[in-house]
Amino acid sequence: MSPALVQYEINDFIAQVTLNNPPMNPLTAEAKQDLGRVFKELDEKSDQVRAVVLAGGGEKAFAAGADIKAFLELTPETALPRLERSHEIFSLVENYRWPVIAAIRGFCLGGGLELALCCDIRYAAEDAVLGFPEVNLSIFPGNGGMARGLHFLGLGRFKELVYTGRRISAAEAYEYGLVEKVVPTEALMEEALGLAKSIAKRGPLGVAGAKKVINQTRDLAVSEALAVESRNWSQLAATEDMKEGARAFVEKRKPVYRCR
């Protein structure tokens, strides 16, 4: 039996998910299926997790696009369900209960960048190369890149990257707002795991609630977003953790959260 194309392990409430098909970790249909399987399993184990770090196996790539050979057999009738399934799988990453941090090393192109944009936070190594090269194949980003890209880039900048297929460095990606931090390549996992550990120490229901509200309100008008925000915030008033956080603050001690 061949090894899984996506693997994970959980230690101290941090799940490390690895795209396991080096050197390029292409997002083939099989790899996406494995990615969906992993995040469904993590959903079932969400009581054991507080944050996720998603990385590519090997040293050359986070993920460098799709299986191009498979495009030769596509028709409109087969392409549509394929894309719909990709959207379902990527949404599992985007809407996972706890924050997902992308640790980007090497190439992060096409579907790989689209996957990274599903994550809550992106840390990039200095050697990272990002881009949407799809126009070189006479297509465009179709795994959510068009829908999500505008949340990170200004319209003109986004069009420039998509229309030209230009690859950009980690430094440019940081300047453009595609990644939140650039770190030395050898320190990438240490930095990403450090962030995950920092998040895991916070009130878990507050973190999960914040992610839920951010994802649900980013396309809403302010008046609608306020209603969602207020409803979710008020529900936290019924939790033991909220009272523990306030009590610990008053008593000047470290809170002990139980995620309930």
Rank of each mutant, 00 (worst) to 15 (best):
K212G: 00
E44S: 14
K254E: 12
N25I: 11
Y163D: 08
C119N: 07
T28L: 11
L27P: 05
L236K: 05
F71I: 05
T239G: 04
P184I: 12
A55D: 00
V53A: 10
A248P: 00
Q216G: 10
V228S: 09
G56P: 01
L92Q: 09
L19C: 12
R148P: 08
T28D: 10
G154D: 12
G206T: 03
K40W: 06
M189Q: 11
Q16H: 10
G203C: 15
I104D: 03
A208Y: 03
T239A: 12
R253E: 07
P141K: 01
E172Q: 15
N232Q: 15
L193N: 12
E84Y: 02
L83R: 03
D127I: 03
L92M: 11
G65K: 01
R231Y: 13
P76V: 09
E229P: 00
A64C: 14
E224K: 12
F71R: 06
V100R: 04
D219Q: 12
V256W: 01
V207W: 02
A51S: 11
R167C: 11
E160L: 08
M242Q: 06
D241F: 05
K197R: 15
N136A: 14
P141C: 08
K201A: 15
R202D: 01
N21L: 14
G149L: 15
A64Y: 01
P81E: 06
L35D: 06
G110V: 01
A147P: 00
F132S: 03
A173F: 05
K201V: 07
V52I: 14
G142N: 13
G36A: 07
R105M: 12
R122H: 01
S46I: 13
A147H: 04
G149S: 13
C108F: 05
F39Q: 01
K32N: 09
F152I: 00
T78P: 00
S86T: 11
G209H: 00
L236T: 09
D67N: 13
K69F: 05
C118K: 03
R167K: 14
E73I: 07
R157A: 14
A225C: 05
A173W: 00
S234D: 15
Y163W: 02
D127E: 12
R258V: 14
R85K: 13
I214D: 02
D67T: 02
F39K: 02
W233K: 14
V17S: 08
L83F: 07
Q7N: 11
V228Q: 11
F62I: 13
N25F: 04
S234G: 00
E175N: 10
T164Y: 06
G145F: 06
D12E: 14
Q33F: 06
P133Y: 00
G57E: 09
K181W: 05
C119M: 13
E88C: 10
V52A: 02
